[in-house]
């Protein structure tokens, strides 16, 4: 198999996930796009490991071992991320990341739907627990 097939596929998947991270508004959809990016990296690791395990004299199978580690870390990441999203949704009533702008510079907080002290504590809470 030509090495360009899995490499190009993983590059395109990574860019799809990049678009999702930048363009989505719901925090859970952003997490799903992050999963897509991690999977693209996994495909790259597996393809290069299969190539190098035949090309090299001796191999540690580092690509597949790192893929397993990445899968485990992605599972931990999605658990922690969903816990944070649920905590934010419980405190704020929304999981819309366009409204979580309390730490942004040069942006006036929306007076209509947020209250400054309480949202400040919620942002600190999210930072402290992250």
């Amino acid at each position: 198999m030509h090495l360009a097939y899995p490499a190009v596929l993983s590059a395109l998947l990574f860019c799809t996930g990049l678009y999702g991270v930048l363009a989505r508004r719901n925090a859970i959809l952003v997490l799903m796009s992050v999963e897509l990016m991690l999977n693209a990296v996994n495909l790259n690791l597996v393809a290069f490991d299969v190539w190098l395990s035949r090309a090299a004299e001796e191999t540690l199978h580092s690509g597949q071992a790192l893929t397993l580690f990445t899968i485990a870390i992605a599972a931990a990441e999605i658990g922690i991320g969903l816990a944070i999203v649920l905590a934010v949704h419980r405190n704020r009533g929304t999981s819309d990341i366009d409204k979580l702008r309390d730490t942004a510079e040069g942006h006036e907080p929306d007076g209509s739907d947020t209250d400054t002290p309480a949202t400040g504590t919620a942002a600190e809470k999210a930072e402290a627990t992250a």
């Binding site: 590059a11 990049l18 678009y19 930048l22 363009a23 508004r25 366009d98």
Partner: peptide, 26 residues
């Protein structure tokens, strides 16, 4: 409102990075 307002900027960034990555890899 699933997509935020900066989807065109996101599309530009994604397409640019896709073109660069695919070109380099191939």
């Amino acid at each position: 409102d699933a997509d935020s307002g900066n989807r065109w900027a996101a599309l530009t960034v994604a397409v640019a990075s896709a073109v660069a990555l695919v070109w380099v890899v191939v």
